[in-house]
């Protein structure tokens, strides 16, 4: 069983500029580039890891945060195993928008049982001195919204980044007893189910 590698798809959602791309890059390449471009379109990176004896390939999807690009990012929500709702602790608005991101995700990912879906909440830019969102506020929101795990991270100095992604993996694994759940490489079936025998009269 341990020889199998599961492919898990996680998606980072949150307002523009909260640090989604920075978190992904920190986790996958262990680098922080303050001069990174803002994201246009959709990108993803893979990372192999082992969590509690399970080999996992984590496919991390990063999208553009601006409202206007919604139609571009939402098609990629499908097939996500976990959603990382991200805000920046120095930006209250990004915290207030978490609910909208959650809604958007549930709607477009076509989540069957939203109450059970593993969301993880990240409050990024922990290193910044002027906070606008307190830990308590954030915890409370997570509590009220479905008892989500909450991590305060810093992509800049790497605080809690790996921990948060690993927790996301654990949540998925435990949720669905996925140990023998092998996701084929084409996790993202955007549209159309596979060919069905098809004619109305066969």
């Amino acid at each position: 069983m341990t020889t199998k590698t599961s492919l898990l798809k996680v998606i980072l959602l949150g307002d523009g500029g909260v640090g989604k791309s920075s978190l992904m890059n920190r986790y996958v390449t262990n680098k922080f580039d303050a001069h990174l471009f803002h994201t246009i379109g959709v990108e993803f990176l893979n990372k192999d890891l082992e969590v509690d004896g399970h080999q996992v390939t984590l496919q991390i999807w990063d999208t553009a945060g601006q409202e206007r690009f919604r139609s571009l990012r939402t098609p990629f929500y499908r097939g996500s195993d976990c959603c990382l709702l991200t805000f920046s602790v120095d930006d209250n608005q990004s915290f207030l928008n978490l609910g909208n991101w959650k809604k958007e995700f549930i709607y477009y990912a076509d989540v069957k049982e939203p109450e059970k879906f593993p969301f993880v909440v990240l409050g990024n830019k922990l290193d910044v001195a002027e906070r606008q969102v307190s830990t308590e506020e954030a915890r409370q929101w997570c509590q009220e919204n479905g008892d989500y795990n909450y991590y305060e991270t810093s992509a800049k100095d790497a605080t809690n980044v790996a921990v948060a992604f690993e927790e996301a993996v654990r949540r998925v694994l435990s949720m669905e007893e996925r140990t023998d759940h092998l996701i084929p490489t084409d996790t993202v079936k955007l549209h159309r189910k596979p060919r069905s025998a098809g004619t109305c009269c066969s």
Binding site: L72, T74, H191, G198, C200
Partner: peptide, 28 residues
């Protein structure tokens, strides 16, 4: 497609559409 075959009801393959994708990006 309206498809009725009396009691036989031979099914047209019922393919769910994925509205999320189509409505947004209304090219499909």
């Amino acid at each position: 497609v309206q498809w009725s075959q009396g009691s036989e009801e031979v099914a047209v393959s019922q393919l769910e559409t994925q509205h999320s994708y189509e409505t947004e990006w209304d090219m499909l």
